[in-house]
Each structure stands twice: as structure tokens, then as C-alpha cells.
Design a protein around this nucleic acid. Structure first.
Lengths: 238, 238
DNA sequence: CGCGACGTTGAATCAGTTCAAGCCAAGTGG
DNA sequence: CCACTTGGCTTGAACTGATTCAACGTCGCG
């Protein structure tokens, strides 16, 4: 799959033209030749579910675009308690440009494909291409908004509200199959790590939501939102 | 104070030259004439403690540099539970550039002075001055890092760890007087809103820390860190 | 002095955790 | 093909850290 064939014509001479996420990634509105230059800096890599690409606290040497798959961003306390601080999807950007340290680990939740750049080279490229930098800024501002909204959940919502909010967020982001069932990219433990709960509490809340007919569960990872209105009410406090 | 006098010479012809925060604010490395242009867009405003400049969900019409004072960024649930998602100090930037809505309220905790810009004009200016945009990007990336670190606190730390972490953060950011006493810009309720706790729990933890000799309390807002090492241990889990 | 806002303290309650057991579906090997 | 393991998920019962509710202090200001 995805062999790096090299056609002849000027502007079609690099892999990006066939890139699945080009329209949404930060490279979207680069001129054709600039995109070619950027593509020369980067390389494609495949990750298996569970693989970690960047470690919290390590010096920041890599950044990347996510081409396919879902990854988690996480931090931990010294004694091993983990908090997932973000979940990223295709076309999202990962890594810490313009900074010495990677502030959180990045781990693949599903098999994934990345377009990986050495940070230093990327930084230089970005500084010379303000359209790219502008896109990166927009994306970072959005991330910051979403992260701050999540703080309200972590600090002030109870278990039911947390789980309901999480499910709505997932339903919004992930495609549903014909029966309206979505396939969660996270295990129960990982959901707990997103919500600041324990696995048991997550499980109990899910079961409770099922019992009330608000959602249906299909196997371990499948969920179907049956009554979105009610789920939304539960996500706030009512 | 701070009257907008207009001296005659070319490059000294705007208020910025006397600006207390110029070295650290996002305007820092603008060329002299660009800074003059930016200053023409903005205006200085004074805020009294308690005043709110921007409301969560309102359309984003203003952005600003903080010249003096401390402000809080906050979000609330429908039923009035509040979470403080950030505290900003002199030379920080506030507001949501390149976005339609302000995602959180901004309220002065102390009397404050801002350098306020209409968002649309600021956006245009920023798009044409990539050094400004670059600085804004750096700042936003830093904010995001700090915000994500705070998620670990909200999701995974207990009350003692939260309060200890908070105090260390404050001690790092605020100047201490001759006796090592810092003046907290936040009331107990606001500390609770930062940490995702209740006011009573914050009070109990502070008293406990005092009883153990780790900190000393001076009146309502004064704190002195007596044993920083021990406080650091408490901030993680030990 | 006395009022009002802010902070502390105590006792009871409860949401969520902890610990322990059991369940289920998917392998693995005899 | 069936016993047995394995890993993820659920369920139950006991426990506990933080909240809730209520009373009491205390500081600053008219």
C-alpha cells in the first residue's frame, strides 16, 4: 500500500498530493513547491497500537502530522497515576515545536500512520512559511480552547456527567456504522484516564446508562447513542 | 497616571516606549514603526478588581495585553459551578484571536491595566506581522503545556497534593516581600475554583500545612513557604 | 461598636475508590 | 473438541476522602 511512486510532472512530484489528510492538516494551504520542500524534510512511519512515539520530559526532537489512526497524549505523576490530556485523530498535529521538551507522552491507541519531521528542521521551515505557522497557531488556539473546556469536566463534573460528556464527544468525532454504533478507540481504563475516574466507576456509569436506555453497548468497544437529548442533559447537570 | 502625552520624535512617538511589559509581551520584538502602528490600534484601559472584561460564549471582539494586575479565566456549568481555567499576570495576552467566540470569561482579580485591541484589527495586524504571530504562537504553546499539566492535577491529585502544587506555583510566579511572604491574588473560594475543590477543603488543607510548619499564614492573603522541599514532596504524592 | 464578608472548624453524609470475586470472549494446547 | 488460561470488563461490599450543612471566628470598615 501507499508506495512512494515518483511521477514526472513538476508539481505532482511528491507524496503529499495523494495525502488523505492534506485538506485539513497544517500543510493545507502551502503553495505546491513549499509543500514539496516540507515533504522532503519528513518521512512516513507506521505505528502499531500501543507503540509510544514521544515520551514525557524527553527533549523535543520530533513533530508529526497524523495521517491515520488515533493517539493519546498523556502525563503521569511520579507514582504512576496517569492522566490522558488529549486524544488526536487523523490530520491533527503532534509534538512540541519551538520548545526544548516534550511535555507529554504520545502513544498510538490504534495502528496509525504519521508524517514525521525532525523538530529543528520543521521549526526552521515554519519560521520561513508564515502560512504554515498561522495554521499551526489556529490549531493550537483550538486545542487550548478544548483543553480548557475539559478542565471544567475534570474539576467540576461528577462521574455521570463525565461519562455522558465523553460519549457525546466521541459520538461527535467518530464515524458511526449503519446501525449508529461507534467503535471507541479507548479501553475502559483509558476512558478512566481521560475522565479522572477509576475503571470501575466508568464501567458502572456505562452500565447505568445502558439500563436507562440512553445508550446501547455492543461488545467491548461498541456504543450506540439511543437518546442523544437525554445524554446531553446528563452531560450538564440534570 | 500614565497620561498619553505625545512627544515629537519619530520613533518615540507612542506610549509603548514607556510600557512596563514591553520586553515580555508579544509586541516585544516588533520593529519600532510596527509597534507604533500596533499602538495606534489599541488603547489603555483600567480595570477594578472584580470587573469582567470578556464573557464566556460572547462573540470575540477584543484581545489585550495585560500591563499590570492579575486576572482569572473561567468557565461555568449551566447550574453555576465554576472552574478557573487560567490565571494571567502582567505581560500575558488575553482574548481569542482568529476565532468567533470567547471560550471563557476574563475577570480582574486585582485592579489591572490592559492594552486593549479590537480583535478584527489585531487579527489583520498579526497576519501581516509574522514576528508578532510567532510570539503569539510560542505563548499559546506554553499556555497549552501548562494547561495540560494542570489537567493531571485536576484529574489525578488529591486535595493535599492540589493545594501544595498551587502554593508552589504561586510562590514561583509572585514576588515575595522581605520576609518571604507572598500576597495571594485569590480568595479561598477562587483557590477552590482553580483546584476543583470546595472552599472548606482548601481551608482545611491550608490549616493542616500550617500546623505541620510547612507554611505560615499571614492574615487572609499572605502565605510564607517555610519548607519548600517538603511542600514539593507533598505536591507529588508523598 | 457592630455590621458584613470572608475564613475556619466540626459532624454527618455520600460519591467514588478500593479490594475482591466473578464473568465473558478469544486464544492455546493437550 | 474441550479444558484451561488470559485479558478486559462487570459487579458487589466495605471504606474513605471530600463535600455538605451548620455554627462559629475574625478581620476590615463605616
Amino acid at each position: 500500500m501507499m508506495a512512494m511512486t515518483k511521477p514526472a510532472r513538476d508539481c505532482a512530484s511528491h507524496g503529499c498530493d495523494r495525502c488523505e489528510v492534506r485538506g485539513n492538516a497544517i500543510c493545507a494551504d502551502l503553495a505546491c513547491e513549499d509543500r514539496a520542500a516540507l515533504s522532503r524534510i519528513g518521512r512516513r512511519v507506521h505505528l502499531q497500537a500501543g507503540q509510544t512515539v514521544m515520551w514525557e520530559g524527553d527533549s523535543s526532537t520530533l513533530v508529526a502530522n497524523v495521517i491515520e489512526g488515533t493517539l493519546k497524549l498523556s502525563t503521569s505523576t511520579g507514582d504512576g497515576r496517569e492522566q490522558i490530556v488529549g486524544v488526536v485523530y487523523a490530520s491533527d498535529f503532534i509534538g512540541r515545536p519551538f520548545g526544548a521538551r516534550t511535555p507529554h507522552s504520545v502513544t498510538a491507541l490504534t495502528d496509525a500512520r504519521l508524517c514525521l519531521y525532525p523538530r529543528a528542521a520543521f521549526d526552521n521551515f515554519a519560521r520561513e512559511h508564515s502560512r504554515l505557522e498561522h495554521r499551526l497557531l489556529q490549531r493550537t488556539l483550538n486545542d487550548l480552547d478544548r483543553t480548557r473546556a475539559w478542565m471544567l469536566l475534570l474539576g467540576r463534573k461528577n462521574a455521570r456527567e463525565k461519562v455522558a460528556t465523553f460519549l457525546l464527544d466521541m459520538a461527535r468525532r467518530l464515524p458511526a456504522d449503519g446501525n449508529g454504533v461507534i467503535d471507541l478507540p479507548l479501553s475502559r481504563q483509558q476512558i478512566a484516564d481521560v475522565l479522572g475516574l477509576t475503571i470501575e466507576t466508568v464501567s458502572r456509569q456505562m452500565t447505568d446508562l445502558k439500563r436507562r436506555g440512553v445508550i446501547a453497548l455492543e461488545g467491548r468497544r461498541g456504543v450506540c447513542v439511543r437518546d442523544a437529548r437525554r445524554l446531553e442533559n446528563m452531560a450538564e447537570g440534570s
